[in-house]
Write a protein that binds this DNA or RNA. Sequence first.
RNA 1: GGCCCGUUCGUCUAGGGGUUAGGACGCAUCCCUUUCACGGAUGAAACACGGGUUCGAUUCCCGUACGGGCUACCA
Length: 509
Amino acid sequence: MSVRVRFAPSPTGALHIGGVRTALYNYLFARKNDGVFILRIEDTDQNRFVPGAEAYIVESLKWVGLIPDEGIDFGGSYGPYRQSERKAVYRRYAHELVERGHAYYAFDPPEALEAQRQAEENFTYNYRTRTGLDNSLVLPDSRVQELLDAGTPCVIRLKVEPGQDIHIHDLIRGDVVFQSSELDDKVLLKADGMPTYHLANVVDDHLMEITQVIRGEEWLPSTAHHVLLYRGFGWTETMPQFAHLPLILKPVGNGKLSKRDGAKFGMPVFPLDWPGETPEARSMGFREAGFLPEAAINFLALLGWHPGGDQEIFTIDELVQAFSLEHINKGGARFDYEKAKWFNQRYIQMTPDGVLAGHIHPLAAARGYRTDLPFLTRVAALMKDRVHLLPDFVEQGYFLFEPVTQYDDETIRKKWNPAFHPAFENLLENIAQVAPFEAPALEEYVRHFAQEQGLKPGDILPLLRLALAGTMKGPAVFDMAALLGPAETNRRLAGALRHFSQVIATIAG
RNA sequence: GGCCCGUUCGUCUAGGGGUUAGGACGCAUCCCUUUCACGGAUGAAACACGGGUUCGAUUCCCGUACGGGCUACCA
């Protein structure tokens, strides 16, 4: 039987980075096994529906390159892939389960159950309590029919028979056993006619011929219910295998990574930006933070999984080749943003300058900088070894785009000597004539010039850097000069010379 | 509270009955470089605890502790 796996997010907001990892593991598993990767939207909660969330999910998957083979927006013959469009299907199956005696109608209004929970410490709707509640198990058939005919609001609940062990063989965790007596009679079909997750996911996984369910650990406890559903429907022969993924934990402190942690720690926890009503609700995305999608994928893949060995950098094809569910760790993995940035740095280094130029383009444009690709390509070459995120190119390399207005005066006081003035005057008059105006020629000229003037390289180089960039941080001086060109180099030298004298004059005064 | 899952350097992890417990991020020192980085080298840093099983447990079993998840007409 060919492998078919699905990623089934619910459109209640931005897709969490943990969700992206779940999608990634499903994708890798599908590719590794020549299977099919399906995107299914689980929008059965009408109250939590968020407009735009579905489009966000699709755009996120596209950005990281996890393109579904089937699903909403991607075709396939097992549709519809949006659960809200399959309402009739679930209704039919829910009733079938009632007929088979594995489910029943319950008329208890939500308020009544709420009151029960208030009154009774650990109230659970199960085999113990259901006989005293308002459902088709205790009501006479005629009365049930009457209520149904009258359109009385009701739900359909799973009838869990006590006294049986439910064994699950989890592909990641091994054997897990649940006692059915501990399980509650889960609602399968809500009063609004929509199914709950439990019914919908089992029916859809069956109908869509899903072979492995790879999902978050938060689903492990309800898997016993799902197994009971497969049994109730008589689908045990084709029941999918289960694999429950460990959670992604907060960078610091306790608990799983939450949506709010992005704003809290100033780091992205979503693939793409997601606007929020308040600053705290606004979510930064990996894309907007300046990550290359390949880097984000590489980072995510290794957060909770490793194939063994010492390799850290994996192309997507290498990930596919190396992937196996058995190597997924059982324990939760803490989100480590420093490591994420390290991956991005490595991927930036590996990316050709011309490609980087394309990434820098919009960032430069946003700041009103030069945007011609040949120039940006050279910027990329000079900066790529010292950035972690794409915006660093313009934020840390600002002096390549704009005139120097701020100088590192501290260093000027240490390095500048008024006695250098004539020499620098000379340099600024003649440097523009160096031909070709490229780094090697410039370096040769300046070093030779220093010698001529009786100066050490250490006297002149730091000051030249300060003149061109204003700061002691940055690419090789001669590379910068070459990029800036003769006119700009001359201009900056002249401006710097005036500033240097002023700074010293201030001290003297 | 109940049920379920987990626990190797600070973090992500490799490993697995006998190892100097390996790698990566981060950190520190040094080299390269008259900048910042990159790169290279070196270093500090871990098997939660207690019982078994065993000639021998970090590795297998059982407890304990700690962490996590679930416990809705949410997913």
